[in-house]
Design a protein around this nucleic acid. Structure first.
Length: 158
DNA sequence: GCCAACGTTGGC
DNA sequence: GCCAACGTTGGC
């Protein structure tokens, strides 16, 4: 089992939005970066844990937990010219871009801001804090995952 | 709104 | 294959 941090701009799709979806489940579409694509296509598996991170907003933070409920399948939004992330090079045979489905688990009672992460010795090394980091899906260690749960007083939901 | 960091594009 | 130009991301 692996753990991931996934970024979303709350003005576009927030943790509340995920919670409101039927079954709390939604596909994680629109990733158009090859490194992240490779993770979604090849590495992210059903049952993996997800830290839901709000980016590009007044208070960037890890705000909740989710889990992967469907693994790597073609991102159909790349094939639709009406979609914002349409890619004319993608085809049914060679979809290029992939997505997974994730399911809402919970909001964190104490969302962790970047400052919170920086100040904790076990979290200060997280990828999301690295300057210039732009990967929208990034690996999280089991130690980081567990530390975040402990800080929030929640049992591991997985 | 600024700007640093990064990925992609395309001319050569 | 190099690299300048450009677009995007995302914290601040």
């Amino acid at each position: 089992m692996n753990y991931w941090l996934m970024k979303s701009e709350p003005s576009g799709f927030s943790l509340d939005d995920l919670k409101r979806m039927p079954g709390g489940t939604e596909h994680w579409d629109g990733v158009r970066n090859y490194q992240a694509r490779n993770l979604l296509r090849d590495v992210v598996k059903v049952g993996d844990g997800v830290l839901f991170y709000h980016s590009n907003c007044p208070q960037p933070a890890i705000v909740g937990l989710a889990k992967v409920v469907r693994e790597g399948y073609p991102d159909h939004t790349a094939l639709d010219p009406r979609e914002q992330h349409f890619d004319p090079k993608a085809t049914d045979d060679k979809p290029i871009w992939f997505m997974v489905d994730i399911q809402y688990l919970c909001h964190l009672p104490h969302p962790l801001t970047r400052e919170d992460l920086r100040q904790h010795p076990l979290l200060a090394g997280m990828e999301v804090l690295r300057k210039g980091n732009r990967l929208s899906v990034q690996p999280v260690t089991v130690q980081e995952w567990q530390t975040i749960l402990v800080l929030n007083g929640v049992d591991d939901p997985l």
